Amino acid sequence: MSTTGTRSVGTKSTARTTSGWGRFLGQKAVEVGVALAALILLTFVLVLLVPGDPARIAAGLDASVEQVEAARTALGLDQPIPVQFLHYVTGIFTGDLGQSFRTGQDVTTIIGVRLPYTLTIALVAIAITLVISVAIGIGVAGLTRGNRNRWLDVGFSWVTATLQTLPVYVFGAILVIVFAVSLGVLPAAGATSPASYVLPAVALTLAPTCSISRIVRREAAAVLEQDYMRTARGWRIDRIKQHMKYALPNLLASTLTLSGLILGNMLGGAVIVERVFAWPGLGNGVVEAILERDYPLIRGIILTIGVIAIIINVTIDIILAVVDPRVLRSGKAFA
């Protein structure tokens, strides 16, 4: 009878977990759909609000009136806005984002060439940010527990608060001056070798690392004062094992909730970083497209960057649900 009861409880628990995942994934699908719809509408309307005549730009500034009108017809700009929007949406889901005004290439081809550079630097920066910020945050929390090493606590707060406000283009310029110009150990621009990834990735990680390490330090300080952590210290368990096995899993939930927003915002910083280091990614591409008023390319790149941001946030939410089952019970993330 006891065995039957145990099986019944286990079955109910599994069913609740499955149901929780179903509700959670269903909600995430709805949120992604709404965010994607808003992004598509925003990118379509944004270009309409930009001053200038796209047909004139596509045909060339020296083009005749007839050539401009021919370009307008070829681009579908002579059609009503709802029809243009329908063609835009259809093109998105068929992989046809139009052609660049400047080069005549397919926008999808240009994005396909630039996307790997942006993804690589973004993923490297995110990995560096998470590893370093978690290590620093837990380390400082452990060293300052119980009001010890007050100087370290104050210094950490002051330094991180100062550095996280430093504009990414300023920090990038400093890195170029020190490591590329003065020391000559790293390339200043371009993506010609693996060493070229170092300075852009470091420039992109500074502010997020400071912000997330402050979050981790605060959450870790609270976790380290819990009864189970006092018990672990009483048993004289190795300090590294205390932090990695007992403290880290219990502070990941709240840390990931807040970090997801910060990591998503890193894409905005990537635009500036790519411009500073002449990085051939989407960020530098969208700046060039804006300067050239290359509307199809502007739309395509902004849409792609927005989709990447959505994917990052959804991934963080799913990881959070795996780490903290309360997310499944509530049906939503804490953010």
Rank of each mutant, 00 (worst) to 15 (best):
S13M: 09
A70R: 08
R329N: 12
A222Q: 14
T205P: 02
D227M: 00
F156M: 05
N149C: 07
A335L: 04
G268F: 04
G20A: 00
T43H: 08
I308E: 02
A15G: 07
G306D: 00
F179D: 05
I305K: 01
V124K: 07
F171A: 07
Q226V: 05
P296C: 09
G104R: 06
E288P: 01
A58P: 06
T6N: 12
N250Y: 07
S259D: 01
Q84S: 12
I272R: 04
A59P: 03
P194M: 11
L252Y: 03
S8M: 11
P116E: 08
A15V: 10
I308H: 10
Q84T: 05
G184L: 08
T103V: 11
L166T: 14
N250A: 14
A335Y: 08
E31L: 09
E292R: 14
V198W: 05
A278S: 15
T120A: 09
M244T: 15
T209K: 03
S133H: 05
D53E: 12
V34E: 01
L252P: 04
A15E: 14
L320N: 12
I290R: 09
Q79Y: 00
A35T: 11
S64P: 13
G104K: 05
P249T: 02
T144S: 09
L258F: 03
L42S: 08
W235N: 08
D227I: 03
F277T: 02
T17E: 13
D317E: 00
M244F: 12
G260N: 01
I121S: 10
E69R: 07
D153A: 13
L186D: 06
V322L: 15
L252N: 04
T108C: 09
F179Q: 10
L163E: 06
A207H: 01
R16N: 11
W279P: 05
L46Q: 01
A29T: 13
V107M: 10
I319Q: 04
V134I: 15
I319C: 10
A333S: 15
Q242W: 01
G155I: 12
A180W: 09
V89H: 07
A321V: 02
G306M: 04
T192R: 14
M266C: 05
I240R: 05
C210V: 04
R7W: 00
G268T: 02
R326Y: 06
T257H: 02
R326T: 09
G5T: 11
L143R: 15
E69M: 11
G283D: 06
T231N: 06
R145M: 10
I318Q: 02
S254M: 06
G269N: 03
Q27A: 15
V276Y: 03
R218F: 14
L183G: 11
I132A: 15
Q105S: 08
I138Y: 03
I240Y: 04
M266E: 02
G269V: 02
V134P: 01
V287W: 04
R230F: 10
L251M: 14
I302A: 12
R326N: 14
A278Y: 11
D53M: 08
V89C: 11
L303D: 00
R236Q: 10
V327I: 12
A38G: 12
N147E: 15
T17K: 15
M1Q: 13
E288V: 09
I57A: 11
M1Y: 12
D238V: 01
R102S: 14
T108Q: 15
V168W: 02
E219K: 10
I212K: 06
R214D: 04
Q99R: 15
K12F: 12
T118E: 04
I132T: 15
S157T: 13
I215E: 00
